[in-house]
Nucleic acid binder design. Sequence first.
DNA 1: GTCAAAAATGAATAACGTTCAAAAAAACGA
DNA 2: TCGTTTTTTTGAACGTTATTCATTTTTGAC
Lengths: 211, 211
Amino acid sequence: MSVAENKTGRVARRRQKNLKALISAGQAVMGEKGIDAATMHEIAERADVGAGTIYTYFKSKDELAIAVLERLMHELALKIEQVTDTFDDPAQVYAFGIRTVIDTATSDLRWKQLLNRAEVIANAMFHRMGPFAIRDLENATEAGRFKVDNAALTWKMATHAIVGVALSVTNDECPEFTIDETVVRLLCMTGIGREEARELAARPRPALPNA
Amino acid sequence: MSVAENKTGRVARRRQKNLKALISAGQAVMGEKGIDAATMHEIAERADVGAGTIYTYFKSKDELAIAVLERLMHELALKIEQVTDTFDDPAQVYAFGIRTVIDTATSDLRWKQLLNRAEVIANAMFHRMGPFAIRDLENATEAGRFKVDNAALTWKMATHAIVGVALSVTNDECPEFTIDETVVRLLCMTGIGREEARELAARPRPALPNA
DNA sequence: GTCAAAAATGAATAACGTTCAAAAAAACGA
DNA sequence: TCGTTTTTTTGAACGTTATTCATTTTTGAC
């Protein structure tokens, strides 16, 4: 019987607390200094755990960065949902949505820093969006369409996804801003047709861990 | 009298050769492994120089990465110009232009790897495109427009520029593909009006060093 | 309290970018 | 050609940092 399943759950609670503390510390340090300059030792210290302890929670610095990014995305999603819940007037939703995304991307969360690691973000995106985006695309060789390899697709997805979330809503042609609509647009950018993208975006996404 | 200006110029030639060898080695290693995983020691070994010698040519690994990116961009520009020179039919120019850009971005040059360092690329872009893109934008606070800080703008520029060069030409709405037209579009993305962007793009750009 | 499993720890390791004192090469005057 | 000065190269050494691992601590069942 593993400790995590224990009746009291004291260990599980401590692990949960440490996990949250580590992600918070990672978010703080990486946000201030960027991923490269953030050191695992400082993150451990801020989370009040030993240096080696991090590695019982995350396999590597990159995995921690992924977790941080996931939290950022989750927080952003919550804020946007709040905006769409608060206002009825599409113009207001649009205005406040833009403001929220831009504020998030430029100050609080320093996505530009996180962008330094396109591969980390790619993995995070895949984890978040699920496998549906690549399903039929991996070896797409339609007539007149170039063949994309996995790595290139990963990069394309990641870049488009982040840029799309952060900036596509600044496009004047997009008065109806919702998260799902953005996902649809991102999927379209990968080459999927609009109808299929809409269908895929409508599927339930897995819940975020440790939110 | 400095050695570089010497009559014989033997040293200058050797320096030139080493410089090219270093950029080639950097291109090869960074292309294979990505900038992060590429080590200065391996690059030095492939260029057949001592480990410390690199630092008489480049101030840092990032500067070397910039030089590599500049060469990549120059090579891509040459290929595109060749395409536009070879064909008269706009449809063919378009088709071959797309093919060239995509091939370049996905296999030969591994731009996706270079993207790992958005800031390096941003610097390279600024160096290449000159200061005109930021001139009037830095503290833009138009009504209804958000205030962008320098860092965010840098990131935005870099991301848009690379993604734009690599992917914007896959947009079906762009049948007339030229480098200048792409630059215009990139400038528009930063918020500059289309007319001003066109004027700025028409200005002569400085020649690439060490091509 | 005892014991085995799980978790935490931080000193040690390894890898890498960068520096620098020393050596080699080149340039120069005689 | 020789001696001297200047430039260039070199690679061992340094400092930093992600990661590992032997050891210690904590936990939960008996």
